[in-house]
């Protein structure tokens, strides 16, 4: 069993309000902000590990987790962070974020799938910088595989032949069963203590959220293999279909007034704002 997890490096999402737009409006810069794995992709790594854990020894996997990223050479740090969590191997496809769109990334990943032949792809539902939410679905189409997006829960049978996914959708939860190989994109709740059931490591108590790398994990990660290649090596067309023209700061809300009493609040909402 091999699980492929695509990962994107993003600027610290907790400080997303500190990204800057260049004076000519052509670039977004995140200088001074820590680079991190996209949070949803970290959840995807956690999901892959939980699916493959054998429940016997901590970190014993019934297969291999391969992390792949498309980005600059310095993404190796974020790849190693995923390896320190317990993933086995990394692949960096060199590319400049500004010269990529969802189509190029999905096609690059499809080429990696051709090489690696994974049984399952687990992706984060969206990158928190571009917020596009497209790559997993596009990849599933290119591969002709079934997809289960926005997974809040995943259950796999012991033989790992399928995945039953509870998808978080408008108005409730939709449950689908996909035969592998398949693409799953994960939402926040997948990393709740019971988000993943693999029917082997039954009863294992997971913490809420993705695991932290242990010191041992960090040491091990340094020795794990990370391959590097280029988009050109993979023969993927690098013509952008979606081009950024400019960036602007959205209009900001400003602070209004502080009211002291409920009566005052209701009066203002009724007479001034006219929303009651």
């Amino acid at each position: 069993m091999k699980i492929l997890v695509p990962m994107k490096r993003v600027a610290d999402p907790d400080n997303a309000n500190k990204v800057k737009i260049s004076p000519d409006g052509t670039k977004v810069t995140s200088e001074g902000l820590e680079a991190k794995p996209n949070p949803f992709d970290e959840y995807a790594v956690e999901t892959a590990l939980r699916i493959l854990e054998d429940g016997v020894g901590s970190g014993n996997l019934r297969g291999e987790v391969v992390v792949v990223t498309v980005g600059g050479d310095d993404t190796v740090r974020q790849v190693r962070q995923c390896l320190a969590m317990g993933a086995d191997r990394g692949i960096i496809v060199q590319g400049d974020d500004d010269a990529l769109d969802s189509t190029i990334v999905a096609n690059v990943l499809a080429k990696i799938v051709e090489k690696e032949q994974p049984n399952l792809i687990i992706a984060g539902k969206q990158a928190v910088d571009g917020d596009s939410n497209q790559v997993a679905q596009a990849l599933a189409e290119i591969l002709g595989w079934p997809q289960a997006t926005f997974a809040g829960k995943v259950e796999v049978p012991q033989d790992l032949s399928s995945a039953t996914v509870t998808r978080e959708v408008d108005g409730g939860a939709a449950k689908v069963k996909v035969q592998l190989p398949a693409v799953i994109s994960v939402d926040l709740r997948i990393v709740s203590p019971t988000g993943v059931q693999n029917n082997v490591a039954a009863g294992k108590d997971y913490q809420d959220g993705p695991r932290y790398a242990s010191l041992k994990g960090i040491m091990k990660a340094k020795k794990k293999k990370v391959d590097t290649m280029t988009i050109a090596d993979l023969g993927v067309d690098q013509t952008l279909k979606v081009r950024s023209v400019s960036f602007t700061a959205p209009p900001q809300r400003s602070a209004g007034v502080i009211v002291e009493t409920v009566e005052e609040l209701v009066a203002k909402l009724r007479d001034e704002a006219k929303v009651l």
Binding site: V19, V28, D131, V242, S244, V245, F247, T248, P250
Partner: peptide, 25 residues
């Protein structure tokens, strides 16, 4: 409509940046 090209504005970075994009397909 920017000189005959449709231009779409979309929020990025948790709504902290508006990106204008054009689609070439």
């Amino acid at each position: 409509n920017e000189g005959g090209k449709l231009t779409y504005v979309r929020p990025m970075y948790a709504g902290n940046v508006n990106g204008a994009v054009q689609i070439d397909s």
